[in-house]
Lab assay of single mutants.
Amino acid sequence: NQASVVANQLIPIQTALTLVMMRSEVVTPVGIPAEDIPRLVSMQVNRAVPLGTTLMPDMVKGYA
């Protein structure tokens, strides 16, 4: 099973992502693949992302 990127904390809207905000976890449905974590650093979320939420491509500006 492929690991996805999951929020390690509440990430407020417009926040630039850092490594400490994300973790990898095998979840359903599958979100952004964990191997993309380095690419996500400094990208902004376009909505508030609660703790434990799987990051989906449409939540990160410039990802999809």
Score class of each variant (00 low, 15 high):
P33Q: 07
L40R: 00
P33E: 04
P57Y: 10
R47F: 08
M56D: 03
I37Q: 04
D58Q: 12
A3N: 07
P33T: 11
P50I: 07
I13E: 14
L10H: 15
A16D: 08
Q9N: 07
E35M: 10
P33L: 08
T15Y: 06
L51E: 14
T18W: 04
P12T: 07
R23D: 05
V20G: 13
A16Q: 11
S24F: 06
T18D: 05
I11H: 00
V27L: 05
A34W: 08
V30C: 11
V26L: 10
I11L: 07
M56N: 05
A7H: 02
L10D: 13
R23Q: 04
T15K: 08
V5D: 01
Q2A: 11
M56R: 07
Q2F: 14
Q9H: 07
E35V: 12
I37H: 01
N8D: 09
Q2Y: 12
M56L: 14
P33C: 10
V41L: 14
K61L: 13
Q2N: 11
L19N: 08
V26S: 12
A16F: 14
T15I: 06
E25K: 07
M43C: 07
V27W: 03
S4K: 02
Y63W: 12
R39C: 15
V60W: 02
V49H: 00
V5S: 02
V5K: 01
P29I: 06
L17A: 02
M56Q: 13
M21E: 04
P57D: 07
L55W: 02
M22W: 03
T53P: 01
Q9M: 14
T18V: 06
M43E: 04
P29K: 05
N1C: 07
E25W: 05
L19F: 10
S42T: 15
T53K: 09
K61G: 07
T54N: 03
T54R: 00
R39A: 07
L40C: 03
T28Q: 11
D58V: 08
V30D: 08
N8W: 04
G52P: 02
A48Y: 13
G62T: 05
M56T: 13
M59F: 10
A3P: 10
N46P: 02
G62M: 12
P57W: 07
I37M: 13
G62E: 09
V20R: 11
G62P: 05
D36N: 14
T53H: 09
A64P: 15
T18H: 05
A64V: 10
G31Y: 03
A3T: 08
R23C: 06
A64F: 06
P33A: 08
G62A: 12
V6M: 03
M56Y: 08
V6F: 01
I11T: 00
A16C: 15
A3E: 14
R39L: 13
E25N: 09
S42R: 09
L10Y: 14
Y63M: 05
T53S: 12
D36Y: 11
V45P: 02
V41E: 06
V6K: 03
D36Q: 12
V41Y: 01
T18I: 07
T18E: 10
T15G: 05
D36C: 14
R47I: 11
V45I: 05
D58K: 07
P38F: 10
N1Q: 15
P57Q: 08
V27I: 06
D36L: 10
T54E: 00
Q14W: 15
G62F: 07
V41T: 06
M56V: 08
E35G: 10
M22L: 13
R47D: 08
T15D: 04
P57N: 05
P50E: 13
L19V: 11
P33W: 10
S24D: 06
L19Y: 12
P57V: 05
S42Y: 08
V30P: 11
V60H: 03
T28F: 11
V49E: 02
D58N: 12
N1F: 13
R47Q: 15
A7P: 01
S24T: 15
V41H: 00
L51N: 15
I37V: 07
S42G: 14
Q2P: 15
M59W: 12
Q44K: 13
R39H: 10
K61T: 14
N8H: 06
A3D: 05
V45E: 02
P50S: 14
P12F: 04
I32Q: 01
V27Q: 01
P12D: 07
Q9R: 14
A64T: 13
A3I: 06
V49F: 03
S4Y: 03
P29H: 05
I13Q: 13
Q9W: 07
Q2W: 13
R23T: 07
P12Q: 12
S42P: 00
M43H: 11
A16E: 10
L17H: 02
E35D: 09
G52M: 04
P57A: 11
S4Q: 01
Q9T: 13
V45Y: 00
I32W: 03
T53F: 12
V41S: 02
E35Y: 12
E35P: 06
I32Y: 00
L17M: 13
D36M: 14
L17T: 01
G62C: 12
R39T: 09
V30M: 11
Q2D: 14
R39G: 07
L19A: 12
Y63D: 03
L40W: 03
T18P: 02
A64C: 15
G62K: 06
N1G: 15
T28M: 09
L40T: 02
A3F: 07
L17C: 04
R47P: 02
A7W: 03
M43V: 05
A48C: 11
V30N: 11
L40N: 00
V26C: 08
